[in-house]
């Protein structure tokens, strides 16, 4: 089991380590901001949250739904407190269409500008906890590749906790099962193996 920490928990001395993601420094100590998993890299103490709504970040890929059309663009909602403005030279949008977009800019009040990567058709929109998306993708994409290979599905992953899954109905269901298991067991060790085993079951 990886080390789980809670908000306010002291992680290390600020003199010995650097404060990374989701941490802050108080009275010379590095403290966790969130309920999450502690990791360390290059002398940085980071905490990966075990939950939480998605906060938009530049360069993230997100999956959103068009809520209104604008001149040369549209507004999309992406399961967040915020919406994004997608601008484009050529595309035409209808309300309800699903788009894979890339966040270009986020300002201080979290207003988001995004660019259109592609429209998504013929698939199932599935939602998961945003903070477990990196776990779903896996190191160098290993986990998501394994799931794609075992099920034959096309899967688009939005960092905002949305997936677009295309494939055989039965296989789509298997992807969802794997995603659910990752959410429930994210911080535990040996998860990759258990997902492998789950996918090997032909049911």
């Amino acid at each position: 089991m990886r080390k789980i920490v809670i908000p306010g928990e002291k992680l290390a001395s600020a003199e010995e380590k650097n404060n990374g993601d989701h941490t802050f420094v108080e009275e010379g100590k590095i403290v966790s901001e969130v309920f999450g998993v502690l990791t360390e890299s290059n002398n940085y103490m980071n905490v990966n949250p075990l939950g939480g709504r998605y906060i938009p970040r530049e360069d993230d890929k997100i999956i959103g739904v068009v809520t209104s059309k604008k001149y040369k663009g549209c507004i999309i909602e992406f399961n967040s407190a915020y919406t994004a403005y997608v601008s484009t030279e050529d595309s035409d949008y209808s309300v309800g269409e699903v788009i894979l977009a890339k966040i270009e800019d986020v300002n201080e009040v979290n207003e988001v500008r995004a660019s259109d990567i592609m429209k998504l058709y013929d698939g199932k929109l599935v939602e998961m906890t945003p903070s477990f998306v990196p776990r779903l993708i896996g190191r160098k994409g290993s986990m998501i590749s394994m799931i794609k290979d075992e099920t034959g599905c096309t899967i688009f992953v939005g960092r905002n906790g949305r997936l677009w899954i295309k494939g055989d109905k039965e296989q789509v269901r298997r992807v969802e099962k794997a995603v659910k298991k990752i959410e429930e067991e994210a911080p535990t060790s040996g998860l990759t193996k258990r997902i492998e085993e789950l996918l090997e079951e032909k049911t």
């Binding site: 809670i6 908000p7 306010g8 403290v31 901001e33 999450g36 939950g51 709504r53």
Partner: peptide, 11 residues
């Protein structure tokens, strides 16, 4: 609140 991933300085 912690379970919801909301950041806090302390519980």
């Amino acid at each position: 609140l912690a379970d919801a991933g909301v950041p806090m300085k302390d519980m």
